[in-house]
Design a protein around this nucleic acid. Sequence first.
DNA 1: GGTGATACTGAGAATTAGTCGCAAAATAAA
DNA 2: TTTATTTTGCGACTAATTCTCAGTATCACC
Lengths: 149, 149
Amino acid sequence: MNQEQKIFKEFLQKKGLKLTKPRQIILEEVFLTHKHFNVDQLYDQIKIKYSNVSRATIYRTMPLLIEASLIKNALRCEAKDHYEHIYGHERHLHLICNKCGTIIEAEISDMEQLLNQIAETKKFHIEDYNVGARGVCVNCLKDGTNSNE
Amino acid sequence: MNQEQKIFKEFLQKKGLKLTKPRQIILEEVFLTHKHFNVDQLYDQIKIKYSNVSRATIYRTMPLLIEASLIKNALRCEAKDHYEHIYGHERHLHLICNKCGTIIEAEISDMEQLLNQIAETKKFHIEDYNVGARGVCVNCLKDGTNSNE
DNA sequence: GGTGATACTGAGAATTAGTCGCAAAATAAA
DNA sequence: TTTATTTTGCGACTAATTCTCAGTATCACC
Ligand SMILES: [Mn+2]
Ligand SMILES: [Mn+2]
Ligand SMILES: [Zn+2]
Ligand SMILES: [Zn+2]
């Protein structure tokens, strides 16, 4: 059992959940490559090897993998959420081509000016960029009585 | 005719398009406040004042406003695209609460370490962040023969 | 002010990522 | 086993966005 599996299993146990066959398959497939992926791609890959793991189960497993800090919802491309590994990977930056959809990865260190330096390195012409940080706001830090979650 | 209208009209003319009534209404409504908005909110606001501008037309107008550099697709929240003004606004950063969905805006200057300083100022606990830059990649810079567009 | 070419529009159908309800199947403890 | 709890696949569902299409507005030219 590799590290990802250990982490996932431990995570699940803590929540009173089980590392079932479908979840194992999904986990394994997710960590088979280091590319970004969306649910559909994952589903197709899995379908080839192991007859059937339903889309619903994959959709249900993503939030678990995220909560376990193994992956994150990294970007949105072609109207689909795309995920990527966190475990074993540095945080990095995505340069997404508006025309062909190519996603170029780049190191982060300072940003802003670096954003342009990096772009130059990658011969990418930045037209726009977004920085989105997620977390918990003051109000939500206080009361556990939240609208969401 | 205010500046936004001038810009939009000029933009449209350059493309052989017209500044029609629905487009004027949408433009005006978009620039009435300086908050983020999604198509549904916009639609509701417009419906109150001017009987009917169809959702389809609003959806069709967003890309035009974006191409005219008046607005941008700034973030995704609650499964909806959210837009914000570009014209007359500094580029800034969004702190999105994972629990209540509150969006806090903050100035950009250097980022990364700043991201944390800012978060402290706003009493926001950052759990994750994404930096996504969009533009055109080398390949697409060369040939006009693109997969998309 | 007609007239034809072109661009626009609203309405609603279609598409599609993502979610949900449910009854059957797996799990694991007793 | 029995029993309580999860989990699953399936298919129905939801909701944002896109598309189709037939009717309208626009505008250059007569
Ligand atoms: Mn990446
Ligand atoms: Mn903003
Ligand atoms: Zn490209
Ligand atoms: Zn909050």
